[in-house]
Nucleic acid binder design. Structure first.
Length: 630
RNA sequence: GGCUAUGUAGCUCAGUUGGUUAGAGCACACGACUCAUAAUCGUGGUGUCGGCGGUUCAAAUCCGCCCAUAGCCA
């Protein structure tokens, strides 16, 4: 059995900036790619930008730029940077204006033409510029195509047509024989429904004098290729141009949004058939991301989530995890910052990150920071551990990604329970029970190793960090199906940063709540208002310069029962060392913010004199760290 | 109007081919514990399983009709 996996995420239309929907799709695709790699598949993962067409020509014109300059900017400055930040692990990024793609499209066109599946015909009808296609009167609502801003125009055009209708019976047959082809099944039904009636032939060219922005038709330089025919072929051109088409293509999965089902489920299979190429293996159709209130997201509604803001606030891993854990592939799902905070705090910080902290501390304290010998493989926790990969694999294959993650988290919770029940801190008090203690701690490390791999496809950076904090490296999924692979004698690093720092829950300001807020006359606030501010004495444990900002210091504060990190703009007035050991006043319940890449969990009180010199506020006499200030 | 999917605890969702008192996570309350990121663990639900009817010894699960939501098609 050859373990090969080829996957594409839809190539993005380069006429506007990326939004959460683009990000969501790439995260799904990235999960599947990473998971298959971990599971030993020779994997190739591709996405890119779709850069031709009338709409792009118009967007470029509006921006006052040449089309090529415009798409260069959108692809290189908008899409690719955010995907890199998101750690989307694509192996190739295909742009449809690249020479390698253009060449391939022309080759395929030639093939289809030679097969006799392309003819020339004149057509007159209503044309929607917004949707770049001819429309029927029936489709219009109030004279306008739903989704368009302008009514369609009457247009007469001679175009090349692809004999798509000819392949309809074949496609219906194929879909019936391959029920797993389009998933989830609702979309398969939808496609079968579409195919019950004639689908007509597909116009695949545009006259060059009207739409010059496209790939020339090889046998007629007065026409360019219709953008869909061009774009779909990117999935193949990426492979062909790298000389690896034969190897990967038969194993192709496409990940797409439900809005582009028809081109992928109807145009694309018939095109492939005509070109003599095999059909893809699977079409994975996802739904859309909705606002928290379940309504559509949109700039005009003002409820759109900016993926950059999300990344700045929560980091790559929390965004991946929350999007995968709290959506159900195929259906539309509401999403918002509240969900990320909740998942980050509950699953990642409390359950997973804290488990790492507790086992690390105990290993350092009780075992000299050295991993003891493997514990028996017949314990319940060991048996569940080695069975985890199998369960997760089934869920992933069924595309129930949220359940796959929940399964892994359940195992993490069972590890926490195991620690509570085994009470290693009690075992540590009795030297005679050393072996028992070592078995308990080894079991937890091994369990964390297994869980980290099961979660790795959703935690692109933190899964590795977690293992690194235990002195462990990388493992395949198969290597989690054997107990005891964490090597005895592994040294546990002395220092490891908190894996997932917790964030304070966002107060969720609704417009209604703001409206109800009592208006303070002449700038005065009530006692209740002031009581909202939690001030505490904090002792500076550590203080250093912010690596990326001259004016900022990063302080680690002891607040009595915990420590936290605060970024403060006082570098001009205080040398880092001079603050260590000092007691300051901290605004403890300030919403955390990320300043130049470092999270600040609060604010230090300071005052300013007439000359603009800043002085920090300290208690006059000694107060213990954590003491409340009122 | 037709087709498809969904409708289970306050919220998000599991419930394999019909079979014992319908489950999990979150949130909330109380308790235990101290290795840990105010963490973890335990305990706590009178849920009309959208409604009505049917098949069956037995239905959240099968069938019919209806209602609601979403999508597709017209």
């Amino acid at each position: 059995m050859s373990k090969i996996f080829y996957e594409t995420a839809a190539i993005d239309y380069a006429n506007a900036a990326p939004h959460i929907g683009h990000v969501y799709e790439k995260i799904i695709a990235d999960f599947l790619a990473r998971f298959h790699r971990l599971d030993g598949y020779d994997t190739n993962f591709v996405t890119g930008t779709d850069e031709h067409g009338e709409k792009i020509a118009r967007a470029a014109k509006n921006a006052g730029q040449e089309p090529q300059k415009f798409v260069d900017y959108v692809s290189e400055e908008l899409f690719q940077p955010i995907y890199r930040r998101l750690e989307i692990s694509y192996d190739d990024y295909i742009r449809t204006t690249s020479p390698r793609h253009r060449k391939y499209v022309q080759e395929v066109l030639k093939k289809v033409y030679d097969a006799g599946d392309i003819y020339y015909a004149e057509y007159e009808g209503l044309y929607s510029v917004g949707s770049e296609r001819f429309v029927t009167e029936k489709e219009l609502v109030g004279g306008v195509l739903p989704g368009d801003s302008e009514p369609p125009i009457l247009r007469k055009e001679a175009n090349y047509f692809f004999r798509m209708e000819k392949y309809r019976p074949w496609l219906v047959e194929y879909l019936k024989e391959h029920p797993e082809l389009i998933q989830p099944v609702a979309y398969r039904n939808e496609v079968l429904e579409m195919l019950k009636e004639p689908i007509g032939d597909l116009s695949i060219s545009r006259p060059k004098d009207r739409v010059p922005w496209g790939i020339p038709i090889p046998w007629d330089d007065q026409h360019v290729t219709y953008v869909w025919f061009d774009a779909l072929l990117a999935y193949a051109s990426s492979l062909a141009s790298r000389g690896i088409f034969e190897k990967y293509w038969p194993h192709a999965w496409h990940v797409i949004g439900k809005d582009i089902l028809k081109p992928h489920a109807v145009f694309w299979p018939t095109m492939l058939k005509s070109a003599g190429l095999p059909l893809y293996k699977r079409l994975v159709v996802h739904g859309h991301i909705l606002a928290m209130d379940g309504r559509k997201m949109g700039k005009s509604l003002g409820n759109a989530i900016d993926p950059v803001v999300l990344l700045d606030k929560f980091g790559v891993d929390a965004v991946h995890y929350a999007l995968l854990r709290d959506t159900s592939l195929g259906s539309d799902s509401p999403f918002g910052e509240e969900i990320v905070v909740q998942r980050l705090n509950a699953d990642l910080a409390n359950d997973l990150g804290n488990l790492l902290s507790r086992v690390r501390t105990m290993l350092l304290k009780y075992c000299g920071g050295v991993l003891p010998a493997p514990s028996p493989a017949d314990s319940e926790i060991a048996r569940h551990g080695v069975a985890l990969a199998g369960k997760v694999r089934v869920y992933v294959d069924e595309l129930k990604l949220h359940l796959a993650l929940e399964e892994a988290l359940q195992y993490v919770r069972s590890l926490n329970k195991f620690v509570n029940d085994a009470k290693p801190w009690e075992l540590a008090r009795d030297p005679a029970r050393l072996k028992e203690l070592e078995d308990v701690l080894y079991t937890v490390v091994e369990g964390l190793r297994i869980a980290s791999v099961a979660l790795e496809a959703a935690l692109p950076t933190k899964a590795k960090e977690l293992r690194a904090a235990l002195g462990l490296g990388g493992f395949t999924l198969a290597q989690t199906e054997t107990w005891g692979l964490s090597p005895q004698g592994t040294r546990i690093p002395q220092e490891a940063p908190i894996l997932f720092p917790k964030l304070e829950a966002k107060p969720a300001p609704t417009p209604e709540a703001e409206a109800l807020e009592p208006q303070a006359p002449n700038g005065l606030i009530t006692l209740e208002d002031f009581a909202k501010v939690e001030l505490r004495v904090a002792e500076v444990v550590k203080c250093e310069k912010h690596p990326k900002a001259d004016k900022l210091l990063v302080l680690t504060l002891n607040v009595g029962d915990h420590t936290r990190q605060v970024v403060s703009g006082i570098a001009q007035w205080y040398a880092p060392q001079s603050l260590v050991g000092r007691k300051l006043v901290l605004v403890a319940n300030l919403k955390p913010a990320v300043l130049r890449g470092i999270e600040s969990q609060g604010m230090i009180l300071a005052g300013e004199d007439a000359a603009g010199n800043v002085v920090v506020v300290s208690p006059e006499k000694d107060l213990p760290p954590g003491a409340k200030v009122r």
